[in-house]
Structures are given as structure tokens and as C-alpha cells.
Amino acid sequence: MLSLIFIIISAIFIPGVIAKIKSKIGGRRMPSVFQPLFDIIRLFKKGAIYSPTTSIIFKIAPIIYFSSVLMAAFFVPMAGQQGLLSFDVDFVFFAYLLALGKFMMIISAMDTGSGFEGMGANREALYSMLVEPAFFVLVGTLALFTQNSSFQDLYVNLHTSTQLSIIIGIAALYVITYISMVENSRMPIDDPKTHLELTMVHEVMILDNSGFDLAIIHIASWLKFAIYGTIISNFVVQSSWPIYIQIVSYLLIQMGYASTVGILESFSARNKMGKNPQWIIMLSAIAVVTFLTTLIITQKIILN
């Protein structure tokens, strides 16, 4: 329960923090941290515009997307605190649930009959297909290393096992951070602030959404961000620490994660579109190397 509450709290702050960092670096005046939240509230007060081309798919997709992300948040543990739901091999359910949400968003973009949105939907489909193996190899590595197979146990046992966990931890941290960039449509895969439809990925898919639908899509994106932030923080925060230290360090890592994204987005440019697939496949390759390293650590490969 606690983990869900903190995911929601950090989801509220993260977009504000990123915006603040970016405007600070860009030399602009900073909006309030709550500005994104105010925007959402304003969207909730609005009506909606639907294109006559769209069908029922366009209306149900944002709701299913939002539900899938919120539901996924139920499974994510926070350090020693169990997720709201937890069972064996729950990360498969987690990954496929997010895939369901994506499936719906992709077809909803195609439902508008717009060439731009088709392009975005197509890219999103390709990238999320390519990033899937990286995630599975990563959790496979953790399952192999910790001898466990649920989100909660993976983390608890990652820290309580040997000192060597730090090697796995760092590699896994790297991979998961970049997986989160792909999943959240951030740099270097996608530039959320680009102004040209042709160069967008995620943003172009939701061009025609408005009002309530747009609001929940935004909230879902924040939640997704916070979910990945939580997963990342779990590599550092240990369940043996006292609870207040856990919470403080969790919040610090979440803010650090948001600031890093802000800084990266201020200084780096996005990949060329054609280069993205290669870049994402690289993540899987690193994950495989991590897996092989784990085989050495668990002494299944005997070196001499």
C-alpha cells in the first residue's frame, strides 16, 4: 500500500521537477512545481472534441491505458514494502499489462485516420516491441541471481545476498534506466518537447485526444515515470534500512531521477529516428551480458 501511495506522490511532483530543472538550465523563469497538476485540473473542467472519423476504440483506449498503468503500479514494491498485489512471476503480468495499454493507445491513434498519428503509432509499436526482450532478460538475470521470482522477492534478496550484487545492481540499473526512457518516450528515443509532428513519437499519438481523455493519458504517463523511478530506486534502497531512511532515500532518488532527465534533456539531442532501433537492441545486448555475468557469479560458468 505504502509503495502505491509514494508512487502517486512522486508522480505528482516529477513532471514539475523536470520542467523546473529545464527552465532553470534554459534561463527561463521557473513555473511552479504544481503547474502540470493545474494543467490537468483545467483539462478535467473541459469538454471534449471527437473526430467523426474515430470510433468507440478512440473512446475506450485512454481509459484502458490509464487503468493498465495504474494497475501496473499495484505490483511495484518499494524497498521492503510489498506492492499492493504480489504473486509469483508477477513481472510477466506487469509487462503484459503495460503492453495491453500500449496496444490500445496504438490502435486509438490509428483510429483517427491521420497520417501523423499512424507514424507515431508505428514507431511506438516498433520501439516497445524491441525493448521487451531487454526487460525480460533483466528480470531473468535478477531471478537467476536472487533465486526468486516475484518483484518483491527479487529486490529484497538482491541486497541480502552477496557483495557481488553490486556488480549486477549497477548493470541492471543502467539497463532499466534506459528502458524507462524508451517506455516513457524520453530522450534519447523521443523528444517530448519537439514541435514538429513528423518527429514525434508519443506526443503525436495523442494529438486528437482532449478533455478528460487527455488528462488521464497525461496522468498515466506520470505514473509510468514514477513506476520506473521506483523500480530504479529499489536497486539502491535496501529493505534492511529503517523505514524513515527508506522513504527519504526513495524520495531523493525519485527527485534525482527526475533532475537527471531534466538535465539530459536540456543538453543532449535526440537520436536520429533510424538509429533508434539499433540503440534499443543494444539494451538487450547489455542485459544479456549481465545475464552471462550472473552465470559466472553464481558459479554456473566456472572460469579457470
Binding site: G47, A48, I49, T54, F212
Partner: peptide
């Protein structure tokens, strides 16, 4: 919730965005 929110709002129809 959406039905509740949209009850008092105007729901319009407009062509898909094409620049």
C-alpha cells in the same frame, strides 16, 4: 467517472488534426 465529467460539458465533433 468520465460519463459524470462529460455530462455537463459540451462534446463537439471536429475533423482529425491534419496541420
Amino acid at each position: 467517472l468520465r460519463a459524470l465529467q462529460q455530462k455537463n460539458q459540451t462534446i463537439k465533433q471536429q475533423a482529425t488534426w491534419g496541420c
